[in-house]
Amino acid sequence: MKLIALEEAFWCDKLQTDGSPLAHIPLKPEVLAKVRRLLPDFTEFRLPEMDTNGVDMQVLSLTAPGIQAQPDADVAVADARAANDFLATVISEHPGRFQGLAAVPLQDPKRAAAELRRAIEELGLCGALVNDHTLGHYLDEPQYAPFWETLQDLGVALYIHPNPVPADDWSLLRGYPGLDQATWSWAARTGGHAMRLIFGGVFDRFPGAKIILGHMGEFLPSHLYRFDVRYADLDPAKQLQLKKPPSEYFGANIAITTSGVFSHEALVAAIHAIGIDNVMFSIDYPFERTEAAVEFMRTAPLAPADKAKVAHENAERILRLK
């Protein structure tokens, strides 16, 4: 079975930004050491692990928070350009094994749009990834219109990934550092970002735009019914009126990956919620185990044609990998 995995992290030591996520995650020392060793590597560990487990391609992206926490817009632009050039070189050195999602310096939306266009048209990358908020700003805000226009014009998808640096102080999490990371809060925050895009009318203004959410949709697919019935009761004077119910933007504008949620029950529920054409295989390397992800996919209780869609065909179509 062909496997394409598309939330697979890397780091480039040449950047001015200290974008490593490791200072923000309370991991065991041995886990930190392993991740630090694996993030900048492509040949010593990564490709052999892919070969051992039968992963045909990783779609690479700069690890979180990447450049999203960089306060200097000029540095962010330079680092995005350097990261994308580096990524394009890695891809060219290993044809057919890697593709890549561009880093975008949203500190300056117009220059982010220009860098996105360069990354797609000149470097041959297959989409973009943003690590949730950029210095506390979310993509429903009006200054990001040039970026959405370019994304729609290019016909590529934007992966919205969690940001380990919180945008604000969420008092609910005080005293519980284990909750303030991948265990729970990252999914809630990133899912909230996607809901801002829906409720802010971004997909009504840019109907051709496509985003991807990891981690089986950041909790959202299971709540589509509730989104619709509660939205229908909102006072139209206090909420932007959408062109269709919130659930209908899933599939049309929102796809998801399985990254880090290797549960057959969750997979089947997500497919029932948003459709077989909108779910894609992912590992979340090097933070998750490749062998666990592959075993999950190979044993998934799906018909062969549906399994092929999740394993590689949906990614080939949405990211235009063929």
Results as ranks from 00 to 15, higher is better:
residue 206 F to R: 09
residue 104 V to G: 01
residue 301 P to F: 03
residue 51 D to I: 02
residue 167 A to W: 04
residue 24 H to I: 00
residue 220 L to C: 15
residue 41 D to P: 08
residue 102 A to Y: 12
residue 242 L to G: 10
residue 270 A to Y: 07
residue 245 P to V: 14
residue 80 A to P: 06
residue 111 R to E: 06
residue 275 G to D: 01
residue 107 Q to I: 05
residue 117 R to T: 11
residue 318 I to P: 06
residue 171 S to N: 04
residue 243 K to Q: 15
residue 132 D to W: 00
residue 245 P to K: 13
residue 100 G to R: 00
residue 20 S to A: 00
residue 316 E to L: 14
residue 13 D to S: 11
residue 105 P to Y: 13
residue 19 G to D: 00
residue 156 V to F: 03
residue 253 N to Q: 13
residue 75 V to F: 02
residue 120 I to M: 03
residue 265 E to H: 14
residue 44 E to G: 03
residue 106 L to R: 00
residue 132 D to V: 03
residue 314 N to H: 02
residue 30 E to R: 10
residue 234 L to D: 00
residue 243 K to D: 15
residue 248 E to D: 13
residue 46 R to W: 09
residue 265 E to A: 15
residue 270 A to F: 13
residue 317 R to I: 06
residue 69 A to T: 15
residue 285 Y to N: 06
residue 139 L to G: 12
residue 306 D to F: 12
residue 106 L to S: 01
residue 31 V to I: 06
residue 203 F to G: 15
residue 84 N to F: 03
residue 86 F to D: 02
residue 259 S to G: 05
residue 233 D to R: 15
residue 23 A to K: 13
residue 269 A to H: 15
residue 100 G to A: 01
residue 41 D to N: 01
residue 131 N to Q: 15
residue 287 F to A: 00
residue 64 A to T: 10
residue 150 T to S: 03
residue 162 P to W: 12
residue 189 R to M: 13
residue 99 Q to R: 13
residue 67 I to Q: 02
residue 180 D to Q: 11
residue 310 V to L: 05
residue 104 V to D: 08
residue 75 V to D: 03
residue 304 P to D: 14
residue 272 H to L: 12
residue 268 V to N: 05
residue 303 A to N: 07
residue 269 A to W: 08
residue 211 I to Y: 04
residue 241 Q to W: 03
residue 160 I to A: 09
residue 137 H to F: 12
residue 48 P to V: 06
residue 254 I to A: 05
residue 257 T to W: 07
residue 120 I to P: 03
residue 55 V to N: 07
residue 130 V to R: 01
residue 167 A to V: 12
residue 226 R to M: 08
residue 13 D to E: 15
residue 208 G to F: 14
residue 266 A to F: 15
residue 151 L to W: 12
residue 178 G to T: 04
residue 317 R to T: 12
residue 194 A to N: 13
residue 190 T to A: 13
residue 280 M to W: 03
residue 60 L to F: 09
residue 10 F to H: 01
residue 64 A to V: 01
residue 131 N to D: 12
residue 295 E to M: 10
residue 13 D to K: 13
residue 5 A to T: 07
residue 115 E to P: 04
residue 261 V to D: 10
residue 214 G to I: 09
residue 228 D to F: 11
residue 217 G to K: 11
residue 21 P to F: 05
residue 57 M to V: 04
residue 276 I to K: 14
residue 295 E to D: 14
residue 305 A to S: 14
residue 105 P to M: 02
residue 200 G to C: 15
residue 136 G to H: 11
residue 272 H to D: 13
residue 176 Y to M: 00
residue 200 G to V: 14
residue 212 I to C: 04
residue 138 Y to A: 07
residue 13 D to Q: 12
residue 36 R to G: 03
